[in-house]
Amino acid sequence: MTTDASTQAPSELVSTGKASEALDTRFEAPRSAAPKVRDPRRPDRRTNFELYAWLFMRLSGLLLIVLVLGHLFIQMVVDGGVQKINFSFVAGRWSSPFWQTWDLLMLWLAQVHGTLGLRTIINDYAERNVTRSWLKALLYTSSVFTLLLGTLVIFTFDPNI
């Protein structure tokens, strides 16, 4: 769409411009061109990436409802609410593989879910290709960093420090 009309319209549909010349413009019957790739932004990729990303958003969303609401309930409501949370509480929880798995799953699902969601928003709102790729590079770098750091902490947490 950013390309001007003369490169977009088939040659037989482009008028010669000036009003005086418009009388000379010949219009041929419009005919269908062969299917073609319209923009380098639309490469001929035959992968199911978009499909799996779409599916992941839905499935992870369902799981996150349970994981996050359960997490919030345990942290904020039961056993004296938010006041109980301190170093020893976290250390106690992460000594159990069950809570390690819960937190690891929540971290990965939420991080990937959020990254894919932000990717959609960037695709929708960034108009220039350059802006788009910079924002996405920033997004992917920061989420990989957060993911790795979080995973590292969950697995290497030492209650004796």
Partner: peptide, 18 residues
């Protein structure tokens, strides 16, 4: 792309259709 008044260039639309 707006061409004049209420007339737009329909070619991008028909490209997607093709």
């Amino acid at each position: 792309p707006l061409q004049k008044d209420l007339v737009v260039d329909m070619e991008p639309f028909f490209d997607a259709y093709r």
